[in-house]
Structures are given as C-alpha cells and as structure tokens.
Amino acid sequence: MKVIFLTGSHTRHSYIAWRLHKANLLSGLLVEEREEFVPSPHAGLKEVDHHNFVRHFKDRSESEERFLSTPESDSIRGIPVLRVTMEELNSDKVKEWIQKQNPDVVLSYGVHKINKNILDILPKYAWNIHGGLSPWYRGNITMFWPFYFLQPNFAGMTVHHLTAQLDGGPIVHHSVPELVRGDGIHDVASRAVIQVAEDLIQILILLQDGKEINGQPQKNSGKLFTGVDWKPQHLRLVYNHFDNDIVDRFLDGEFGVQEPPLIKAF
C-alpha cells in the first residue's frame, strides 16, 4: 500500500511525517513551505495584549519543541520528497508528482486549500487531518477556541475525506488526547498531534489488512472559524483570567462536562 503525505514545514507537520515513516507507512512526502512559526505582535497593542501575544506564541514554540521535535539522526530518507511553495501547491508540477507516485492513500495536514484539479486525481482514500474537532470547531485556529469556550475536552483532531468544502468532508475518525493535569493550551495541542499520529497508524494498518474504512457525513455544520475571528485580546481570558490552568479547572469539574459524540474508525 502506497501512502503519500502532503504537509507543511512546521514541527507538528514534520512529527506526523516522521511517525508514519518510522512505522513504514510513508511512500512519498510533499512539504509546503509555511510562514514563520512565531509571528510578531501587532503594532498598537495595549501592554497586556502585547505581553500575552508574545507569551502565547513563545509557549507554543517551546511546547511543540518539547513534545514533537524528532531526532536529526532519524530524518526521513529513502522516499521521494517534493518541496513546494504555497503558490506551487496546486500546480501541474504537483499534479504530475502525485500521479507518478500512484498512491493508494493520500493524507494532507498543514497545507493550504487543495483545488479541484488536484482533488480530481486523488484515490478513494484521500483524507485531511484537521487540527480541531469537526463539526464543532472547523476552519482556523481551532485548537484555541475550545479553551476560550472552556471546553478543553473538545481540543482534538479530525481525519476526514478531502473535499472542496473546507473541513466539511465525511468524518473517518476523531482523535482526542488525554487531558493531563498541569498542561496548558499548547501542551494539549501537542498531545493531540501525537495521538492522531498513533491513530492514523492503526487506521492505515487496518486498510493494509483489507478493512474498508468509510466516513460519516457531517450532519451539523457547526462553526467555521476564520482568521479574522481571533484577536490578541481573546488571550486575556486564557492568561489573565485563568493563568492557563483551564485543564486543571476542567478536571476539577468547574466548567461541567459535555462530552463530544466522537466518530471512531477502530
């Protein structure tokens, strides 16, 4: 079974590629060069928002380095690798590269939207890994919003069919990490990446063994968050009001419990 992975260049993306390769489940890798991982604060922010912005993205970088960095000695070798820019993602070059690999499974995570000219050549099993639990948290920054709405147990990942509708394809699998006391917002997000990598390995092995894996249509459209929904001022709730201890307060029962009805492939 040939699996190719279309992914970004950040640590979280490289971790899943590394994990699939280590499990002998990766036959080709396309890497889209992404933007700088630690952005600069916007001009004109109040001191509190400037401080929170710097803290938030610094903590994110440190958490992903701690949880998701992979050893240099274990770098991916022996498979075709294509590196592209955002502008090249939907190009004929990429289309021809995918066709040349002749994959049985295509996975995507951390790349920009894939256009119809690429979608049309993908195999039956073409899945996106979405950082967020669909349909409740779709779109952008979807690992932040569960914390803002005091639902850290809704912080997870969705494997769904790749379609033209953003994060709207039939759901194959929901993956959620264990909530560990003492974890902050970025630790939960990092654990979610680790968990979805392990879940994907199990799903791909089932496919390899001949099991049919079908998705379930998303019946509820949920909320599609866009980049403009998020403002640095939203960080005040996480850091100034709760001091990034939302997980502990949730585990203590402070917010009540509403469990998401999860879809599982195994």
Rank of each mutant, 00 (worst) to 15 (best):
M1W: 08
S9P: 04
I16N: 08
R19E: 14
K22E: 13
K22C: 12
L26C: 11
S27K: 02
L29C: 09
L29E: 06
E32W: 02
S40A: 06
H42L: 14
A43P: 13
H50Q: 15
H51L: 09
F53H: 09
D59Y: 01
D59V: 07
R60K: 15
E65M: 10
R66M: 05
T70A: 03
I76L: 09
P80A: 02
L82K: 03
E88V: 07
D92P: 10
K93A: 06
K100R: 13
P103E: 02
V105Q: 04
V105A: 04
Y109V: 03
K113T: 04
K113E: 05
K113F: 06
I114Y: 00
I114D: 00
N115K: 14
N115G: 07
D120A: 13
L122I: 05
P123V: 10
P123I: 10
K124H: 09
Y125C: 07
Y125G: 07
G131P: 08
G131L: 01
G131F: 00
S134T: 15
W136A: 09
R138C: 04
G139T: 05
N140F: 03
W145D: 06
L150Q: 14
N153M: 10
F154A: 11
A155T: 10
M157S: 02
H160I: 01
H160Q: 11
T163R: 10
A164E: 15
Q165M: 13
Q165S: 15
P170Q: 12
I171E: 03
V176F: 00
E178I: 03
V180P: 00
V180R: 02
G182P: 10
I185S: 00
D187W: 00
V188D: 02
A189S: 13
I194M: 12
D199G: 10
L200N: 07
L207V: 10
D209W: 05
Q218K: 10
G222E: 01
L224H: 00
V228Y: 08
D229G: 05
K231I: 08
P232L: 05
P232Y: 05
L237C: 00
Y239H: 02
F242Q: 08
D243Q: 12
N244M: 03
N244R: 06
D245N: 11
V247W: 06
D248F: 01
R249N: 15
R249Q: 15
D252G: 05
E254V: 15
V257D: 04
I263S: 00
F266Y: 12
